[in-house]
Design a protein around this nucleic acid. Structure first.
Lengths: 125, 125
DNA sequence: CTGTATCCGCCGCGATACTG
DNA sequence: CAGTATCGCGGCGGATACAG
């Protein structure tokens, strides 16, 4: 066999491409990371927001909703006043941690090369 | 120590976030994949385009330029008429293959759960 | 505290047409 | 065959203000 992977179907909606869609919303993987590494798999909205410098309330909620729809996290409304909502990793979300962490680890190992990202000519003329 | 990873700095421009930027342009990882798995690390423009159903000439060239700037591939202009340009994986690009393939492999292993991506209610009211 | 609703700029990305 | 130039749409995503 010549192929490296078994999946040589590059259809528009193959599994690899669907995974990439999970990264389309840029906060998804970071939420999963923080939930797993720092928050033991569950956290309330405010904690999440404070753990992710730069995220806005809007995008945090919006991203969490999408993640709930895709089955990466679950949403638990606890009290009533004041509202206390907790998000938890699902088995699917937990399984997704592994490839994500490898991705991040790779970034740390290659941070030197990655430092000069947009520092090059940009034009060749 | 309580942290799972050594990097607990969640600055705006940490290594993990820079890696995510590589996925901002959606074709990047797929180009790397195809180059490595099906094309033995090097290929001409036309071959690449035919290997990636759905990609336009514009985005292919544009993405390859960005990848060249970040050091993931090199660009080699061979002949002159007609033009024959070949793109090759750099050591950096080759190293990037591993985490990408793990990501794709995860997608294939969880394709069942991923099938119903946008198939849920979307609204909760 | 958690979540929603606008307004709006930015840019990825496709379609199309044209140059060498 | 490889690449560029335009036009235009859709949607991410930040800022702000408001509601339960």
């Amino acid at each position: 066999m010549k192929a490296g992977t078994s999946d040589e179907e590059w259809r528009e909606d193959c599994a690899p491409r669907r995974v990439l869609e999970l990264f389309a919303t840029k906060w998804t993987s970071m939420i999963l990371h923080v939930l797993h590494v720092r928050l033991n798999g569950a956290a309330r909205t405010g904690v999440l927001q404070r753990s992710l410098p730069g995220v806005s309330k809007k995008m945090l909620t919006q991203t969490l909703r999408e993640m709930e729809n895709t089955g990466l996290v679950t949403r638990h409304v606890q009290g009533t006043v004041p509202p206390a909502v907790e998000y938890r990793l699902t088995p699917l979300g937990t399984r997704f941690i592994e490839p994500i962490e490898l991705l991040y680890a790779w970034g740390r190992s290659n941070s030197d090369a990655l430092n000069e990202l947009g520092s090059r000519p940009t034009s060749r003329r």
